[in-house]
């Protein structure tokens, strides 16, 4: 693949980077990344991936844009309220970068479609807002042997980790979803919008670095962010002997934050 004139210019600040260069940019342009959820995490993640020139971005979301989303889900605009999120996100990505092939799945990510959808992607970003979905994505990626980035956000806190086959998975941190009453209800919880952006863009950076093959990913460690005191720390996570080979029952405890 040869970059054309406008691509050279568009991606020049990538190409300048010694660790990226032309070959790194070409890897990005040949890559396929799936973003599950186009909310607080998925919106900035997908937007940056689009800007970076990822060849194919898959977007899964069954929701429509709500006015209360706009405080943090920066890929959606006021005029999009009521429209399917995946369509809104696709349009923005293509306005930002028409070269990106955006594939939309206006549906929920479920046990039934999980493996079929992820199989064609090189990297998966978990931008969902429920424990059930997070465990499902974890299990699907472990079973399907796919690398993925996990992230979760609440109030001023965020956490994120990356899994590639052979390293610790989300279940090595949390064995099972928490019981229902242990999770703050939507009315109790809130989120500082920019925190969603911080974590989402970390996820995008993980995807980019994985695809180019540079640096140290957030594997076997959990990055914990406290944006109230603005402290970052990482916690080591040991890969356990958990053998995930089939799906379990994932009880939905929805919290519409991300």
């Amino acid at each position: 693949m040869n970059l054309n004139e406008s691509q050279i210019e568009r991606y020049s600040r990538h190409i300048i980077l010694q660790q990226v260069g032309g070959p790194g940019q070409e890897k990005l342009m040949n890559a396929k990344v799936l973003v599950i959820g186009t909310g607080g995490l998925g919106a900035p993640a997908a937007f940056y991936l689009g800007a970076a020139g990822i060849g194919t971005i898959g977007l899964i979301d069954g929701d429509q844009v709500d006015l209360s989303n706009l405080q943090r889900q920066i890929i959606h605009f006021t005029e999009d309220v009521g429209r399917p999120k995946v369509i809104s996100a696709k349009e923005k990505i293509n306005q930002l970068n028409p070269e990106v092939n955006v594939v939309t799945y206006e549906t929920l990510f479920t046990q039934e479609n999980a493996l079929e959808i992820i199989k064609d992607y090189d990297f998966i970003i978990d931008g969902t807002d429920s424990f059930a979905a997070k465990f499902l994505i974890n299990d699907a990626c472990v079973i399907g042997k796919k690398p993925f980035s996990h992230a979760g956000i609440l109030r001023f806190d965020g956490q994120t980790m990356t899994h590639v086959p052979g390293t610790a998975s989300y279940r090595c941190v949390f064995k099972n979803p928490p019981p229902k009453n242990a999770v703050p209800t939507c009315s109790q919880a809130g989120i500082l919008g920019a925190v969603a952006g911080m974590l989402g863009t970390i996820q995008a950076a993980e995807a980019l670095r994985y695809i180019i093959g540079i640096g140290d990913l957030l594997t076997n460690r959990l990055l914990v962010v406290d944006a109230l005191s603005m402290k970052f720390r990482t916690v080591a996570v040991a890969p356990s002997e958990l053998d995930i080979t089939e799906f379990q029952t994932y009880e939905e405890v929805a919290c519409d934050l991300s």
């Binding site: 970059l3 050279i8 210019e9 020049s12 190409i15 300048i16 260069g21 032309g22 070959p23």
Partner: peptide, 13 residues
């Protein structure tokens, strides 16, 4: 600058 460097780099690649 920096497009001259970008182009140089791409040729070197």
């Amino acid at each position: 600058c920096p497009m001259n460097f970008v182009k140089t780099k791409l040729v070197l690649d």
